[in-house]
């Protein structure tokens, strides 16, 4: 049989039907396997699916891309004890900070829920993906 992609062109109705049929065979086989599982197996399966669901709630950030992006941040956040000009207080340590908190904080500066002028300007230049990547990298640095 000619190679055929069900969603693409050049695929006859019969071929598509046979692919779909085979797919549904796989699905029903999987269901049969699940039904025949013992209780501990089922529990394990349930836990595994929940864990998978949790970790895939938000897109995984790219740490390597994040490491490139934080070059700018280091101008202030890379100097131990560096203080903000006015009012005077130290710029926070952000390496090792929690991932979702960093994402929320940067979105907060974008939306104006946080009002630090420099950080508002910095956050404006970041895309959602940039923010995810930065958060993935920074949170990975926890000591």
């Amino acid at each position: 049989m000619r190679h055929c992609d069900p969603g693409g062109n050049g695929c006859s109705r019969a071929q598509a039907a046979s692919i779909l049929g085979r797919l549904s065979d796989h699905v029903s086989a999987a269901i049969v396997r699940m039904i025949s599982m013992t209780r501990p197996q089922l529990l394990g399966f349930a836990v595994a699916s929940v864990l998978f669901a949790i970790t895939s709630v938000h897109a995984e950030g790219d740490k390597a891309a994040g490491k490139k992006l934080v070059y700018t941040c280091a101008g202030c956040h890379g100097v131990p004890g560096y203080t903000n000009a006015y009012p005077q207080y130290p710029v926070p340590k952000i390496a090792g900070q929690n991932e979702q908190y960093i994402i929320n904080a940067l979105h907060g500066y974008q939306k104006g829920d946080r009002t630090h002028p420099t950080m508002m300007a910095q956050a404006q230049s970041l895309s959602d993906t940039d923010i995810q990547n930065i958060a993935a990298y920074l949170s990975s640095l926890a000591k």
Binding site: K67, Y71, C73, A74, V79, K93, A95, K143
Partner: peptide
């Protein structure tokens, strides 16, 4: 005791 750090030593290069 902290898990936090500044970015010193953590940027590209």
């Amino acid at each position: 005791p902290t898990k936090l750090d500044t970015l010193q030593g953590h940027i590209e290069g």
